[in-house]
Nucleic acid binder design. Sequence first.
DNA 1: ATAGGGTTAG
Length: 651
Amino acid sequence: MFQIQTLQPTYLPPPFHHQRHRIHAASRPSSTTLAVPLSTSNKNPSIQSLCKKGQLKQAIYLLTHEENPIQHTYELLIRSCAQQKNLSDAFTVHRHLIDNGFDEDPFLATKLIDMYSELDSIQHARKVFDEITNKTIYVWNAIFRSLSLSGYGEEVLSLYRKMNRIGMPSDRFTYTYALKACVVSESRISLLCHGKEIHAHILRHGYEGHVHVMTTLVDMYAKFGCVENASFVFSSMPVKNLVSWSAMIACFSKNGRPFEALELFREMMLESGDMLPNSVTMVSVLQACAAVSALEQGKLIHGYILRNGLDNILPVMSALVTMYARCGDLDLGRNVFNQMEKRDIVSWNSLISSYGIHGLGSEALAVFQEMVQQGMSPSPISFVSVLGACSHSGLVDEGKLIFDSMVKEHGIHPTVEHYACMVDLLGRANRLDEAAKLIADMRDEPGPKVWGALLGSCRIHCNVELAERASRRLFELEPRNAGNYVLLADIYAEAKMWDEVKRVKKLLEARGLQKVSGCSWIEVRRKIYSLKSTDELNPQIEQIHALLVNLSKEMMEKGYVPQTKVVLYDLDAEEKQRIVLGHSEKLAVAFGLINCSKGETIRITKNLRLCEDCHSFTKFISKFANREILVRDINRFHHFKDGECSCRDYW
DNA sequence: ATAGGGTTAG
């Protein structure tokens, strides 16, 4: 897997004109240095100044005429080669250094390792490391750093074990690099157990108070999704700084726990007045606001960003665009995008997917075209965004054209994720056979995302046969994802195959899994209220239920028919009606009607896909109560107005 | 003697 290559002969520098004796730097007679004091002091500054000016070739020319190059000269040249990204010059300097007896200089070895690493030539870095006998801790750490940056996590860990075996003590840097190595590995096996082992070493050697080491540890657990471990380490830290807090906030944000991210941010602002959040902190906080649709909180953060001059930082601005769009305010997101002085691919992708989740497929396509016209090369994520947008708006032919253009026009090979988008696009449009054929024709192994997209489409169009095929694969690939079992049970329930429903439910129980319960939430005056169908905590719950019962009665007179096929129990019609009326989204609608002022759009977010009954119920309400209602489900937005929904019943 | 580290957008 990891191979060390020797120097490529084509890159080898030509032989030197003046072959010199190999003299060890330390054993060089001092008289030699004294004999040419002028030449040394004249030439060294000039090599130095040439390096500074970026005139590497001239500097190397001077080097070949240099009588007594010193360590510092090589240091400057090495740095210059790295900056100029010039590998063949790097070889020249390296060779020269060896010929002058500096090949056992550990200081220069670390510099060489760093240089080769920056030149994307990890094999040569490794060769320097292997060949130096005097491996100081700096040399070890340098190769760890380089290997980690190139993604060779396992190689780092194997060297780390070797280092421990030979009794070379680690220092604080070793620990941070070794921890990083656990999360950068390209192989699919989890190196979490190694991370835990290093955690133990850190404690054993008394680094539990070291803020850098401990923050890296928090981040290591965060990257593995071990939120509890990360949180435990974080709270055990005697000293925390802004980076530690930011790492923990990012941990909550990235692992689907946005409320805790926001809570920790609040705590940070309260506890430590001297710590001012920076752009990195802001990005994680904005993601959390986006996840929970905390529009008002997001606006406050936006204000902070403007006041503190963070509004020229691209990651912050892209996160703002996404935050506004995901909080339901596409226009504010567009404004932020328009005001950006510079845009990178991520900014464009943010805008494209913003249009996508609002169901504005043609607009997303237009932005994509505009971006390409401006000379910006689309990234793989651009295609995920634009294909997703096509999917939500049913733009099947447009999506297929884009998919074909990936390789043909942009040289980007579709990944499993892109196939998942296409399966979703075709499947939603009830072209399930085409979707199945696309999967069959895939060169890579279709992963859970692809089969999941197919199963989701089978749910929409109630295709039992294909659903069974998809779920069989899914149960193998991700046996612990409860959502797949529920989808299959839904499909059986709709087909009234009650025995099969029972069988799937038993399977779910046998594996110790639970259906994710529906939850909806709504922001009222900067506070977020979440509602669950089983929730008796809301003080207004009786008022809410009463309102819903009345509304449904009145609406049924006007033609609303409860869609009870989503209920997974074989119950009588009335019981089923009672169950669907308790869905969390309807509770949130009622809560919004009670607590939001007239004319204000009611904005609701929920953790699952909108069920058909809630969809038709909310359409009715929007007309009946003359209210605009904006609902974000797990996939997209539904904008209800005058009895219609922006998704045109295609979701 | 010298040198090096942790959090970030779709």
